[in-house]
Each structure stands twice: as C-alpha cells, then as structure tokens.
Amino acid sequence: MEAVLKIFRGDATSGAFRDYTVPLDEGMVVLDAVHWVQAHQASDLACRWNCKAGRCGSCSAEVNGKPRLMCMTRMDHFPPGEPITLAPMKAFPVLKDLVCDVSWNYSVNRRIPAFKPAPPEADGTWRMQQVDIDRVQEFRKCIECFLCQDVCHVLRDHDRKDSFAGPRFLVRLAGLEMHPLDVESRGAHLKEEAGIGFCNITKCCTEVCPESIHITDNAIIPLKERVVDEFYDPLRRLWRRLRGSA
C-alpha cells in the first residue's frame, strides 16, 4: 500500500505543492511519512519535530486543510487512494516548506503581566487547596503547538496580530487570572492589549486543540465575563463609585 503526499515546498515568496509517493506501514503517522520523504526523496524538506509523542508541540501543520499535529495523525485516518495535502500553518509566515516563523507568539507571551503571589503566610510559605487549583490545571496542559492560533480567524483571516493575543495566550491569562495565589490584576491587559473582545467565540480553537482544552468555554468566556465585571457592567461600576473604589 502506498499514499501520495502533496507537500508544500517553498517559502513566503514562492512555492508549490509537490507529490511524493510513500509506502505505508501499520501504525504509521503523517510525521513518519514526512521522515520517509526526507530519507528517500527530498533530504532538503524542512519540518519541525521533537518528541513524536504529542508532547512538544513542534510538528504543527495543516493536513488536508485541518490544523493538526503530524505526529498524532495516523495515515489510516484518511481514505486510501486519495492524496493527502500537507501545508504549513497558514496564519504565520513560512520560513521553508512546513516550517513557520512563530516568533510573534513569543513576543505576545512576554507582554503578559507575570504571576504575582500574595504575601506568604506567617510561617513564610504559601498554601493552596486542591479545589482552588483544579480549574487552572486544565490550562497547564497546553503544549504551545499554536494550532489554536493558526485556526483562529481573527489571526488567520483578519490578521489582527496588532490587537489580539489569540486563544493560546488567553488560556495562559486564564491560568494566571484564576490562580488562587495570584494578586495581579490583568483586566485592562485582557481588554486592551490581549484584545479579548476580538474573539467572537466561534470555537475553532477548541475544535483543534490536541490537548482537548476547553479553550472557549473554560478560559475565554470566563475571562470575557471578568472583563464585563470590570468594564461593562453598569451596576458594578456604580457600586464601585459609591464605595469610592473607582
């Protein structure tokens, strides 16, 4: 059995999809097929990978148009006989073949106000209860594959990287904001810099997350509600005025 891969070859200025025929093996994943192409047909084919176990988040690409981890996508997932399209993430500039420049994400990350712990208890330590930390543990599963960033239409179609941090960083912000020991306030950052209002909760990020993080329901919508508390809820604003805290 063989499969035909149509792989994007090129960079940000020119490129084309080229066909490669690959022999199939039992249990093979798309990344295996790419490695086979590198070993036998195109030693200059560029792709990022590290763990081949869905842990490092390096091998993100678009397989038949869907953002996926190549190492977690089995070849027998696709109907036999049909070519499989393999392209780099569309939301980021291509460096070469399947490799993108994702450095914009790191600059967004650097601007997020860091964890700021409350003062320690009398014995100089901090304590947390499991019930308080359960919720944010979901957000710690993120492997920074940036598939959610790639599929998010605000970044992918509208290219609002100037104003919107993207779902991955809203997940990180949720982990910080909901942390029981954190005392930093990130409301203004969420509204102005991270641009949470640009998200129209259409949930594509949740659909592609390989870690099954409920990005929209558990991170973005709860953060939107917190932003409402701080900036849009007229009664809360009035109450803060009356108490002299705003």
Binding site: F8, G10, A12, T13, S14, G15, A16, F17, E62, N64, G65, K66, E82, T85, A87, P88, M89, K90, A91, F92, P93, V94, C100, D157
Partner: peptide, 17 residues
C-alpha cells in the same frame, strides 16, 4: 504567510476535503 497563488485566501478558500 504563503504565496496567494499557491494557497488562495478569500471566501470559502480552504484545503479541507
């Protein structure tokens, strides 16, 4: 991100099958 003639953008453009 990529040359538009290779990966079109615009309404309903997709590589999804």
């Amino acid at each position: 991100a990529v040359p538009a003639e290779v990966r079109p953008r615009g309404f309903a453009a997709t590589e999804r099958r």
